[in-house]
């Protein structure tokens, strides 16, 4: 590299970002490898070996939170990607695509506190709009106790998150669709390719990296979901909708800082492992497509 280039693109440009990121992101991450192994409360931190992890794994709420996080993550990835892909294909062929895109994206700018309260009203078992609508069209059996029934609540939370985020994933698909050269589609039509063939052999392969980005994004967001659960159900009823991050917060709020750090470290390991695995799997699949 030329000396002039090194001077022009000086490292000094990166220093403000590097400082803040280093102190408030990298440093606490490194700290967590120490504090997870301490009995840390407000005043002091004493080394305590693996005791936080033993306590965590022996806590029955932890297994509930782990299971709920798994259900939430898997279902939300599938639904967010499927719904947004279907919408993207519909918008791709629709003359009013900008109008609908604006509408579908809009819930993404709402805060989870607003959405949580809103859906508490919508999903009210007796007078909520959702159950009233379902009863009105004769689907009484679907009018459930959305946020109250213990076996139902985590699925309702998935539904709410898909409602909020589908438009975001849709925007990623639309951005990718805009990069498909139109002459590619035209020549496929001339060669006699039908809509399914065009989707299978042109559109879907061209969407591969957007698809992967959406899956990875939904994976990380799902595993670290906090706001939605905390404000909508607080992990309840009981612990039936507890997820890993809400459990960690509750331990933090009780002053069990060491235990909460251990919980964050467990989430850290899960996120890194699954993201790397998923990435490898998706990259392999992309080559095959």
């Amino acid at each position: 590299m030329h000396k002039l280039e090194r001077k022009t693109y000086s490292i000094s440009f990166a220093i403000p970002w590097l400082l803040i990121y280093g102190i408030f992101f990298v440093l606490p991450t490194l700290f967590s490898f120490y504090y997870a192994f301490t009995d840390w409360d407000l005043t002091s931190a004493k080394f305590s070996g693996f005791s936080n992890f033993v306590e965590m794994f022996n806590n029955p709420v932890f297994s509930t939170a782990l299971a709920n996080t798994a259900i939430f993550t898997i279902l939300s990835i599938i639904l967010k990607v499927a719904v947004s892909l279907a919408l993207a294909m519909a918008l791709y062929h629709c003359v009013a695509s900008n109008f609908f895109r604006t509408i579908f994206f809009s819930p993404y700018v709402l805060s989870y506190i607003a959405i949580g309260v809103l859906f508490t009203a919508i999903m009210h078992p007796e007078i909520g709009v959702l159950n009233k609508a379902l009863r009105a069209i004769g689907l009484d059996f679907l009018a459930l106790n959305w946020l109250i029934e213990k076996g139902q609540v985590i699925y309702s939370l998935v539904f709410i998150d898909v409602w909020k985020s589908a438009g975001f994933h849709l925007a990623i698909f639309i951005a990718a669709l805009q990069t498909i050269p139109s002459d590619m589609m035209e020549s496929a039509s001339i060669d006699g390719a039908g809509p399914w063939k065009k989707f299978r052999y042109i559109t879907f392969p061209m969407l591969a990296s957007a698809f992967n980005a959406n899956v990875i994004f939904a994976l990380i967001v799902g595993l670290t979901k906090f706001d939605l659960v905390f404000v909508t159900t607080g992990g309840g009823p009981g612990y039936y909708s507890e997820v890993l991050k809400t459990l960690v917060y509750k331990q933090f709020a009780m002053g069990r800082y060491g235990l909460a750090t251990a919980g964050e470290l467990i989430i850290f390991v899960i996120v890194i492992t699954l993201t790397v695995t998923m990435r490898k799997f998706l990259d392999k699949r992309e080559v095959e497509v």
Partner: peptide, 25 residues
């Protein structure tokens, strides 16, 4: 330098922030 910075950015996209130790910082 630029590759090292890029690795830091990529880590920041995936790694969940350690919130509790931030209390110490």
């Amino acid at each position: 330098w630029s590759s090292a910075l890029n690795v830091l950015v990529m880590l920041g996209l995936v790694v969940p922030p350690a919130i509790v130790p931030l209390y110490k910082v």
